[in-house]
Amino acid sequence: MSLSTHTTPSGFVLPSIHAAPPFFTKQPNPATEAIVIEQWSKLILSYARHRKLFMLRVDDAETPGGEWDEVLRNERINRRLPPTHLESILTAMVVKGVAAYEPAKQTRSVLLYWRLPEEWAEVLHQWATSTGQMNTIMTYYEITEPAVPSPLSNIPIPLLRKAIAILAKTNRAQVIAIADGEGVRFFAPAK
């Protein structure tokens, strides 16, 4: 049985395992299923990073036509990831810390940490430094929708808030309440 990788229209190279029908079935054997989940989370995170996707919902597996179709479905072998299987994969990812339920207290949609919040904090601070935003007050909107596209473009507010909170802990940022919501001021790290 020879399985091969496949390049999607979006330029993402799917692993060969994605062409194996058993990959989509929830395996009763826990050891086998652990491998399946591990491969799936790796695939999901890679694809999310490739497409700069932050959210994954169980609904994405239920209704075709979404931005996750290339991964959750494989038309070539007539297989799709059943929603229940996706949900268990998401649960495993949350447990592993590479995703978080968003909003909290439900299990059907997650925020994907293809960068961990700590990494995002670094990225954010680096971006602020490189674009000369030190010591100025910025709104969240200015960060998520910058005039010049940045790695932080379209970052979900909850994730941004987490990153800022991490920076605030190390005294590299300060959350400021402003007229139309919240703002942040970045500081250069204490020398």
Partner: peptide, 21 residues
């Protein structure tokens, strides 16, 4: 349908998306 255990010893051969900051 039954397959041999494809997952055992499977190594990731998909795309490694490098971080571009």
């Amino acid at each position: 349908k039954w397959y041999p255990n494809l997952f055992l010893g499977y190594a990731w051969d998909g795309m490694e998306v490098e971080e571009t900051v």
